[in-house]
Design a protein around this nucleic acid. Structure first.
Lengths: 388, 388
DNA sequence: CTCTCTATGCTCGCGAGGCGAGTTTATTCG
DNA sequence: CGAATAAACTCGCCTCGCGAGCATAGAGAG
């Protein structure tokens, strides 16, 4: 069922949202193309763009001449337009950046950290506060991405970071800005689905291997986040050996079959300190070839299972999943095909390497932050803000 | 990202959609309650209801007096309002019914069948054609539910029915009515999420055991159907023994661990002709107790894995899954808890028996059919139809 | 039985967005 | 330099939603 009723105060921004959304999807669009694609009457296009210009949301600059007829203009983000603060907290470092309406992220500051939550949050909050001081009300939302399981804006399990539960609401700077918190794999998946290897796909599955397996299903550009935001923990599906207990508390987790811990186990070595670099190293170790092949098969089989269950149009592989598949392509392909339901084999979904690389999560964070800004509610608030 | 632009011609039905949607969610609402809940000005409520009455979409009848003040009226579906044809094709029988705006289904005809696709389709189509002859343009959509894997409106795998690929588009009666085709487990899940054991949950997981396991994830009342509509085939996740080949073509499928085939295997018996009734019988067989417990554990473990991965607010159990859990409650609960990630154990999602019973799929089919009718596009078409 | 009270419905003028026909404008091509 | 062309602008019109003020149907009180 549709989502309910929006007041007329918000509904009046429908046209503006449509235009800004399209602008985000296809940056550098001309106004003429835009009106054509959205089916707007030319008068309507004039009105909407005028309104958006008035509100410092877009600029119009002369387009390169393209033939006969009156030249059109190119729409772009306004230099005084709304901004989204994005922050990323990873295994060993953090970054804070700022994104404009086009989704481009400019990094403001970054540093390594020593795994102490309070100190990291302080450092990140300081940069965020500085940004709010500098840009004031132009900052409309804060979007934080962490390498951890996130639930209701709280970090509940961060094996990678080695953190316990941490409340991130301290990152919401003054002035009651909306705070969005997301998992790194989830937001990297969003980035791939919107402007990466799964662009254009209605349903996309993203899988990433770092320590264990993370991922997300993205439907129409939005992650299927579950009731508490902790969806996408595909690594804790029991695809593996039921005798193995996972640090997450469950058993037989897929996680344990695919990362550096699995390689070490298959080689009869003790569990590695840092499973991620252990796996990366294993890709170059001739002696680890069989072990790498074995975990690649586990990756392929599980991926096929998820394709059976979720029916994505495209699967994107992030982190070390891409390199893994590349190093043992035949093993992956065979396991993948073998794990598919027969009727899917004729036209299985494409499995592609992610293209956003290390910036995927940050780009995804910017994207979901902008969703907030470029929405009927968000634009109504922006307009009210500068009127009052 | 929002779904794009709707023309003004469609946008003008926003208010009407909001009202009809609420009416569907809370049948028997008074007009006053409706205006309050949707935040409509009293004048707006007057206008919208007048418009809806004008179009034969709702009726207003005097409400039971409830105290002081001017009495309000109760809104209900109009007796000359739009209808959705629903058809269900099951293992051994079929049903065709018709639903009004309140989602209530009246069965028009039903019969057993002999597993011959062409004959079944002919019979169903005949009833549907009769309905269209009788109600004409009042019939706005045809929603078909089949006990089979459905892909792009085509039936691609029907182990239950014993059918090969079948194209169901023959069921779209004349006049180009929209045809919706869905899987039975998927639509039963929709019914539970909208008006059943998962009512009110934003993210609900439905699992059902018949022959194998079917199900669906339902987000905001809509099934996560995947790229081709074949999502929700959770039974073909490799939770089981990788040595076992599944009729679907994959191996290690969860399917094989939970239904009548699994019981027979555990008892050292040959595979049953009809796994569904074999399982039902096993529930009453003292000698099958261990086997039933074993498959119930497999159900619990897999359910926990899906909870880890998808993070539903509620899990609903349909078909024989409910009875299975009831017969071996301790086994289910232990396996479920053991399979959860530790941080989920404090507040795991409720696991409830489905309440729609055998009618779930049919109710779900009516619901998704009505989504089509009660939409800006659908209402615009309805209005245009009676104007022209 | 009538008066008062109250929650609700109705009327109507207003403002806003989108539409489309007709007009104007900036370019390129001949 | 003028014709052709594609795009932008103007303006009257439509419909929706809003909200203030008015009308109304019952319940309770006397």
């Amino acid at each position: 069922m549709p989502t309910g009723h929006a007041s007329a105060n918000e509904a009046r921004w429908r046209g503006a949202v449509a235009v800004l959304d399209r602008l985000r999807r296809e940056p550098g669009s001309t106004r003429a193309a835009l009106a054509r694609d959205l089916g707007l009457a030319s008068g309507t296009a004039t009105e909407i763009t005028a309104r958006l210009r008035e509100l410092d949301l877009v600029t119009e600059t002369a387009a390169a001449a393209s033939g006969r007829g009156r030249p059109t203009s190119v729409l772009g983000p306004h230099p005084a337009g709304p901004l989204v603060l994005v922050a990323e907290i990873r295994h060993e470092d953090w970054r804070v950046g700022v994104a404009g309406l086009d989704g481009r992220v400019a990094v403001l500051d970054a540093d390594r950290h020593a795994h102490r939550p309070a100190a990291v949050l302080r450092a990140v909050a300081a940069v965020a506060d500085g940004a709010v001081d500098r840009w004031g009300r132009r900052v409309r939302a804060v979007s934080v991405v962490v390498a951890a399981t996130v639930r209701d804006g709280r970090l509940v399990q961060a094996s990678t970071l080695g953190w316990g539960p941490v409340d991130l609401t301290a990152l919401a700077p003054p002035r009651g800005l909306p705070l969005l918190v997301g998992n790194d794999a989830t937001l990297a998946g969003v980035a791939e689905a919107r402007s990466g290897a799964a662009a254009g796909a209605g349903t996309a599955l993203h899988l990433t291997v770092e320590v264990g397996i993370g991922g997300t299903l993205v439907v129409d550009g939005r992650p299927v986040a579950g009731a508490t935001g902790a969806g996408g923990e595909f690594g804790h599906l029991p695809f593996g050996d039921p005798a193995l207990r996972c640090p997450c508390g469950a058993r037989g987790c897929w996680d344990l079959e695919v990362d550096g811990r699995a390689v070490a186990r298959h080689l009869g070595e003790p569990p590695p300190e840092d499973p991620r670099s252990h796996l990366r190293a294993a890709l170059a170790r001739p002696g680890a070839r069989d072990a790498v092949e074995r975990i690649t098969r586990a990756l392929g089989t599980g991926t096929a299972g998820l394709v059976n269950a979720l029916d994505p149009e495209v699967v994107t592989l992030g982190g070390l999943a891409g390199p893994l598949r590349r190093h043992a392509r035949a093993a992956f392909d065979a396991a993948f095909a073998d794990g598919l339901m027969a009727f899917r084999r004729a036209a299985p979904p494409a499995v592609r390497d992610a293209v956003h690389g290390d910036d995927g999560a940050l780009h995804g964070a910017a994207a979901v932050g902008l969703d907030e800004v470029i929405s009927e509610r968000g634009l109504a608030a922006w307009a009210a803000d500068r009127a009052g």
